[in-house]
Design a protein around this nucleic acid. Structure first.
Lengths: 104, 104
DNA sequence: TTGACATGCAACCATTTAGTTGCCTATTAT
DNA sequence: ATAATAGGCAACTAAATGGTTGCATGTCAA
């Protein structure tokens, strides 16, 4: 879980996930196109994404295809985000109450 | 948005958010209790969380109370997580198809 | 079979990050 | 008034991070 959060912390990596979301199964070179970064830098990002299980790769001859794995993202939504959303309204009204109390 | 992802990338900071979720409105010293970290380290984490708008603070005499702001977390769920969940089933079946194709 | 293409590996570098220590300031309680 | 308490500021450090360059390897096409 920590690996996933760390992987998502970088804007370049999130953008790579966006690209794969737009078109799944791209090669390394395809993912490099238009980025202000060397191929090796992109490779490193992809390795981090793969270690976090956010993408899966398949060698196809001399090319490597990258596929999005949406499961970890979903899990973050389920196990983390939702927990905070449950208490959302309660937390906000509590905050409001305290803010008003400050001016007494 | 980037600030929020960066803020969430650290396990200590996520744990601080958890603590506030369990009990809102804690002081700095309360948040330090039981942590293997100096008070100053915790302060730094709290500043990062505050800059990312994940918490709000109120000075109350000589103490500083910390309140959770669930809005940015909710936004990540809305603007980011959900986007990937939409294509989830499609992506998985596509992945399955490709994995099977590999063995041809 | 040989050249071009797609990717991998490793060493190196600058910056950011997470943490520390030491000292200072403001508020409260005795 | 003064001691204890709650927190703030700044300088420093070690390790992690994001990037580079140079070279090596494996695969495909002419």
């Amino acid at each position: 879980m920590d690996e996933v959060f760390k992987a998502l912390a970088d804007a370049s990596r999130r953008s790579l996930l966006d690209r794969l979301h737009a078109r799944n199964g791209q090669t390394l070179n395809e993912l490099c196109e238009g980025l202000a970064m060397t191929r090796q830098a992109v490779t490193k990002h992809l390795v981090i994404l793969e270690d976090a299980n956010l993408i899966t790769t398949i060698r196809h001859g001399r090319e490597k295809l990258h596929y999005l794995n949406p499961v970890p993202i979903h899990q973050i939504g389920e196990r983390w985000i939702r927990k905070f959303e449950r208490g959302k309204l309660a937390a906000l009204s509590e905050l409001k109450r305290q803010l008003e109390k400050r001016d007494e």
